[in-house]
Design a protein around this nucleic acid. Sequence first.
DNA 1: ACTTGACCTTCCAGCGATTGGAACCTTTAT
DNA 2: ATAAAGGTTCCAATCGCTGGAAGGTCAAGT
Lengths: 134, 134
Amino acid sequence: MNIGTIAEKSGVPPKTIRYYESIGLVRPADRRPNGYRSYTLFDMRTLNFIKRARSLGFSVEEVRDLLDLWQDKSRTSAAVKALAVRHVEALDHKIEELKSIRKTLADLVKRCRGDERPDCPILEDLGHAAEGGK
Amino acid sequence: MNIGTIAEKSGVPPKTIRYYESIGLVRPADRRPNGYRSYTLFDMRTLNFIKRARSLGFSVEEVRDLLDLWQDKSRTSAAVKALAVRHVEALDHKIEELKSIRKTLADLVKRCRGDERPDCPILEDLGHAAEGGK
DNA sequence: ACTTGACCTTCCAGCGATTGGAACCTTTAT
DNA sequence: ATAAAGGTTCCAATCGCTGGAAGGTCAAGT
């Protein structure tokens, strides 16, 4: 399988696959006599694993750890769970942060008339943060 | 006021202030005879405005637009509101995305025993995404 | 046989928003 | 006199790709 084929089948672009190889996230692909990378179904599974893990918001370094655990038959599920729990906590933190921002901004938006006049509570908040915030 | 002083007072690090100047987000600071940047209270207000806007999640480009509107006395509050509404929508989108990820992952975590044994629904999900996802 | 187009290769650069560090100059305090 | 603390510039790194240039290879059509 050439890189274009596995890219299409896995949904991971060729550029990204080469990038993953360059940072050692996937093992270097075998090469054909012409220099083309040659992929197997094993590589497909790995790419799908990575893609899924990335879509769940794990960083590339976390994915590296997850791949290690995946391949390590003597792993403990506790180790995997610990990694995942940390990530859920990070997600919770981020969500709360965004919700707080959203609330502040939505309040300002609600108080802004949004007409042709220049006075606007949004700009006032940003401008007066000088006094209020410090 | 030297850059260190305004940095401390505004909470924007010197490095960041110079960066903002380099991308034209703030006007180039006046220079003293020795080459040091010299700041005024006007600059303080601008930096505070930027800091507040950034803390509300506006991108630097959005902050640029907001600064323009702030300085433009003939602006309409409708223009400001439109910008803010777009940003609230972007926040909502991001929050929903993270919540969805969090839910998926929290379910997997719940189903993982987290003991000394190797079998783990989290790794199973990631590994079998190959068949399930495609 | 030749050409076109689609693939593959490598390497370098850029995105966003800083931040760190090196190498150097100036001011302030001891 | 000297050392610490501040300022200056410029280049590089972060994270996770992605785009583009310059070139080699392959399969199909004329």
